[in-house]
Design a protein around this nucleic acid. Sequence first.
RNA 1: GGCUCCAUCGUCUAGCGGCCUAGGACACCGCCCUCUCAAGGCGGCGACACGGGUUCAAAUCCCGUUGGAGCUACCA
Length: 493
Amino acid sequence: MSGVDKSVRVRFAPSPTGYLHIGSARTALFNVLFARANNGTFILRIEDTDRNRYVEESMEDIKESLSWLGLMWDEGPGVGGDVGPYIQSERLDIYKEHADRLVETGHAYYCFCTPDRLDELRKAQAAAGEPTGYDRRCRDLPEEEVRRLLDEGVPSVIRFKMPLEGATIVEDVLRGKIRFENRLLDDFVLMKSDGYPTYQLASVVDDHLMKISHVIRGDEWINSSPKHVLLYKAFGWEAPVMAHLPVILSQSGGKLSKRHGATQLREFREKGYLPEALVNFLALLGWTSPDGEEVLDFDQMVSSFSLERVGTSPAVFSYDKLDWLNGVHIRRLDPDEFSDRCIPFLQRDGLVSNPATSEEVAYVRKVAPLLQERVKLLSDISDMSGYFFTDEITHDPSLLVPRKMSKEETASVLRKSLEVLEGLDDFSESALETMLRSLVDSLGLGTRQVFMPIRVAVTGSTATPGLFETLHVIGKERVLERIRKAIQVLQEQ
RNA sequence: GGCUCCAUCGUCUAGCGGCCUAGGACACCGCCCUCUCAAGGCGGCGACACGGGUUCAAAUCCCGUUGGAGCUACCA
């Protein structure tokens, strides 16, 4: 029965150095999916131990972005929990205490080397083609010497005393055993001279104190995992299960960068990606559902998620596929819901006032659904629906006149259409369809030859939703006015 | 340079020794539907990096080569 009822506790531990990155969001998602799939607990922990890189707004952005994605944490900033605080800068005394303990037990030592010396050392090593790393000058300083320097207030750090031989095996659930030769590992820093811990110390101490059962993180951490394993050993603690997720690459093969599109979650949000689609897409980057289904909602992912189906090879971020998936999820939305989600974008582009009036909301709910299966990004809505909101239509004769028809013929068709529509009191879709189709018959023309001029006359565009529904929503008066203008344009030519 | 990870269509992937003349999805191309654009339906193009082993049998296991990526800080 050992381990069976050990509860699953996972954490997402971003550092507040900028806006939430899409790759971090993927890591957060996998942690949440694993937690939910195992009735576990998802913890958010802020790793703000680097005072130089700290960015004020990022903490808020991280929380906002996770919430927007629907990845709520059970313990962490804002919600509390039994093993807090969950912000590392509020746990400084804990790290100090643990670092001291390692010094006392002979697993760590004070180092008084200056950054300048370390820098020169590194340069010299690199120039000589040697592996870089600390030369352990302070590792065996006499105790009195250490005390003296400490008393004098000479700046110092605490370093881990790496075993000089042997090997450390890291067990990764996704990849199996990974072997590291200890002699190639550095005497890494545990406590910085400013009193802050390094990631290595803080994350190990916190993961243990917060009873983390599984560490699921990006694979850029693989190389520091032996340090963590050794730290657990030095403290006499049991290490959590580790899983290193494959990296996400940009389309050029390197790290995901701005060059190829958005990288921050907020950018995706602003471009009009749905959280449903983003989460679905991110899950597919490294994981596959047992039945091979690719379009999934959150609950479906939770119910079929397992680490066994997480891969290890790097994945290229494909905007094509994301866009497709976004379209799929948009089409799945309830029409009113879709309309409401379009409103912020219409407001941003000045098509709807802010706040929107109830009339505007009602109108958007008639317009937006017509475009629902045509929109890939919510931000597309403005470009595609302008003619529903403004009466200033630009009539381009080259669009107005269908192929193989003359300007005169087109004008004539529009005049006939105008005449017929003027006499039509019932501007419903079905009445419009009946009316216009019989017009096509009586003119002895093709539907295209009649419908296209009307379409362009009313919308200024050749690509629109169905003609009848479009005319219906725009309404009789505005339709007639636009057709009259189009005729005028043709005549003036 | 050193260490580590990774390696199936352009991309995401299925495949965990025989079911593979390698399946699906995106993208692309063609056809159908059709008032345009989409959506949808049907079809097409297209991959096991290379070389050695192991085995009756290898995309699947092992080794090497090559390639890509990550790490190599008093950053995370």
